[in-house]
């Protein structure tokens, strides 16, 4: 696993992005994040669960129990309207930062 520490707030954005298309359960989110970051980020349960619960309490996610693809009971998370707004806001913010960092690093 690459030695990449998640920046504070980055995890939130990744979770929001992972849930942008469809609802997922915890392991699904973990795998989806690994997939969309091409394996750069492996989110561990010890970080994932507190983040999910925090975001749910903030009203960005809602959760419900359902059956997984392997017919096991699992808790599924989906974006709420507030979560979508948050995703947009954080995406914009990230783009600004990324742009700024990129130009900073390119500067002679």
């Amino acid at each position: 696993m690459p030695n990449t520490n998640l920046l504070q707030g980055t995890l939130d954005l990744l979770i929001l992005k992972a849930l942008a298309l469809t609802e997922l359960h915890g392991l699904g989110i973990s795998r989806r994040i690994a997939q969309i970051t091409k394996g750069t980020f492996q989110v561990k349960p010890g970080s994932l669960f507190p983040a999910l619960h925090r975001m749910e309490e903030a009203g960005w996610l809602s959760a419900s129990w359902g059956d997984s693809e392997n017919n096991r009971r699992a808790k599924f998370y989906r974006l709420t309207a507030a979560g979508r707004r948050q995703l947009q806001a954080e995406t914009r913010q990230w783009e600004t930062i990324a742009l700024a960092m990129a130009s900073a690093l390119e500067a002679g």
């Binding site: 359960h25 915890g26 669960f49 997984s68 392997n70 096991r72 009971r73 699992a74």
Partner: peptide, 10 residues
């Protein structure tokens, strides 16, 4: 339940 479900899934 949620953490155990995760464990089982894993």
């Amino acid at each position: 339940d949620e953490v155990r479900a995760y464990l089982n899934e894993l």
